[in-house]
Every structure is written in structure tokens, then in C-alpha cells.
């Protein structure tokens, strides 16, 4: 049986891991390569690295970090942040990344999804979506949540799937940083709508929240950052808890 995946997310800035509460107030949480190896040892199924201040000049630093991670890590990992063209993705692929995550660049240029999927395969292309509930609608936000768009989240995700996205990483900005649980209603709705895997993100505070998101929303994977980085939830404990609740998991 296919297991549900537990994915620690490492926000990276200048080669260091940080985590923002509601995307601001960043705190240092350590060296990404070391953290990655630790997570693999603990039983993480996959990792996501988000370069939150990706700019053209910093790209080289990121490539070096990706290479170091790939050398040490024996589980898959995704890199996101600042990928705007095929060449960016190719450099990351060649450095050992298994998948890339795109967000703002895809909204500005949806054709990028199709181009990436055709060049590297759909399995390489993760579409990250930051969504916020506004006046009864779910609206896509960009630039780490600072910029509102006119796109409705449901429509955008459906379109991205048609263009060739291989996986959706959906972050609820209303829940992110609150530690009050994932947005199971929205995640469940999106999960039913699409035929590609979906990763739940935003709101994890305790182990029960993971059980809840798998049982209620049926998502394929759940992602969290600070609860893992600061040891509030230990992955081995979390997986035992999920197993007790009959959720298929890799121990």
C-alpha cells in the first residue's frame, strides 16, 4: 500500500534554515544539510527546501547547497524559490534535486508549467499555492503571501493540473503559523477535484492534526516546519501515532 508522506519543510535563506510565523519574524533553525540528514534518519519520507529570498545572485549558493544535500541524503527532496525558467530547473536537477516547486513564476507565466513538464516530466513539477480565504472565496497569493492575485485557488489548481503539474503543495495562509491544525475543508475539496498528489501545508501544531488531515481531507502528504525544527513533534512519535490510527505510513 502507498504510504502517506511526512515532509519537513526547510526554509532556506543564505544557506541557513529559518522559519517564519505567518511568513514574517524569521528565526534561525540551523544548517540545512545537517538538518536534512537528521530528518532522513528520523524517518522523514521526503524534504522540501524553500529558498525564501531567492535572487539571481544567490542561485549559485543554492546549487552548492543542493549538491551537498544530494550527496548526503538517501530520500527524495524538492527545491523551491526563484525558479523562473527551464535553465534554473535544469541546474537544480543536475545538482541532485528530485523535484522543483514553482509558485509566483507559474502564476505570471502559466506556460512555464507546461514547458517544465514537457522537458523534465510531470513528476518533476510541484506547483506551490499560497491561499487565503477572502470574502467567501479562496484567493491565490504571491511573494510569500504579500501579494494578492485575482485567481481563485480552485480554478488555478485545476488549470495547473491540466498544464502538467505533477503535484500540488497547498499552503493555507489562514492556518499557517497558528498551530491550530490544517485547513481540512479546503484540502479535502481540492483533493477530490484533482488526480495528482496533494501535500497539505499550514497549521500543524500537534500529532492529532496530521491524523486529522489524512483522515478528513485524504491528502497524500503533510508538510510542516517549525514543529519539527524545534522538536515539538518528533517524526518517530508522529508515525507511531498515525500507525495506531490505521493510516498507511512508512516506519
Amino acid at each position: 500500500m502507498l504510504s502517506k508522506r511526512i515532509i519537513p519543510c526547510l526554509d532556506v535563506k543564505d544557506g541557513r534554515t529559518v522559519k517564519g510565523i505567518n511568513f514574517v519574524d524569521l528565526r534561525d533553525a540551523g544548517d540545512p544539510v545537517e538538518l536534512a540528514a537528521q530528518y532522513a534518519k528520523q524517518g522523514a519520507d521526503e524534504l522540501v527546501f524553500l529558498d525564501i529570498t531567492a535572487t539571481h545572485e544567490r542561485r549559485k549558493t543554492m546549487i552548492e547547497m543542493v549538491k551537498s544535500v544530494a550527496k548526503q541524503l538517501n530520500i527524495p527532496f524538492t527545491i523551491g524559490g526563484g525558479i523562473t525558467e527551464i535553465a534554473d530547473a535544469e541546474a537544480l536537477l543536475n545538482a541532485g534535486a528530485d523535484k522543483i516547486s514553482i509558485n509566483s513564476a507559474a502564476v505570471k507565466n502559466p506556460q512555464l508549467i507546461e514547458d517544465l513538464a514537457k522537458t523534465f516530466g510531470v513528476q518533476f513539477v510541484v506547483l506551490a499555492v499560497d491561499t487565503k480565504h477572502i470574502n467567501g472565496k479562496n484567493i491565490v497569493h504571491l511573494n510569500g503571501g504579500r501579494l494578492i492575485t485575482e485567481l481563485e485557488t480552485e480554478n488555478w489548481i485545476k488549470r495547473a493540473e491540466d498544464l502538467g503539474a505533477g503535484e500540488i503543495l497547498l499552503t493555507s495562509m489562514d492556518h499557517d503559523g497558528t498551530k491550530q491544525g490544517f485547513d481540512c475543508d479546503l484540502l479535502g475539496k481540492i483533493n477530490k477535484m484533482i488526480n495528482i498528489p496533494i501535500i497539505a501545508s499550514g497549521g500543524a501544531g500537534k500529532t492529532e492534526h496530521f491524523t486529522e488531515v489524512f483522515q478528513k481531507a485524504g491528502v497524500d502528504a503533510a508538510l510542516a516546519a517549525s514543529v519539527f525544527h524545534y522538536g515539538e513533534i518528533l517524526i518517530p512519535d508522529l508515525k507511531q501515532e498515525l500507525k495506531r490510527n490505521n493510516i498507511p505510513i512508512r516506519i
Partner: peptide
């Protein structure tokens, strides 16, 4: 099913040297 098939899945392997010392029910 979701496509792609993405993630860790249990493999039922036969007695083959390729899987020597791999625990049963490994993903």
C-alpha cells in the same frame, strides 16, 4: 488512483539476490 504513483510503497519481493537482507514488507 492519483497519477503519478508517487511515494513509498510496500514491495512483495521474491527470494532473489537483488533483495538479499532486505527486510520483508520494506517500502
Amino acid at each position: 488512483i492519483k497519477i503519478p504513483h508517487m511515494g513509498w510503497n510496500t514491495v512483495e519481493f521474491k527470494n532473489n539476490l537483488l533483495f538479499k537482507d532486505v527486510p520483508v514488507d520494506t517500502q
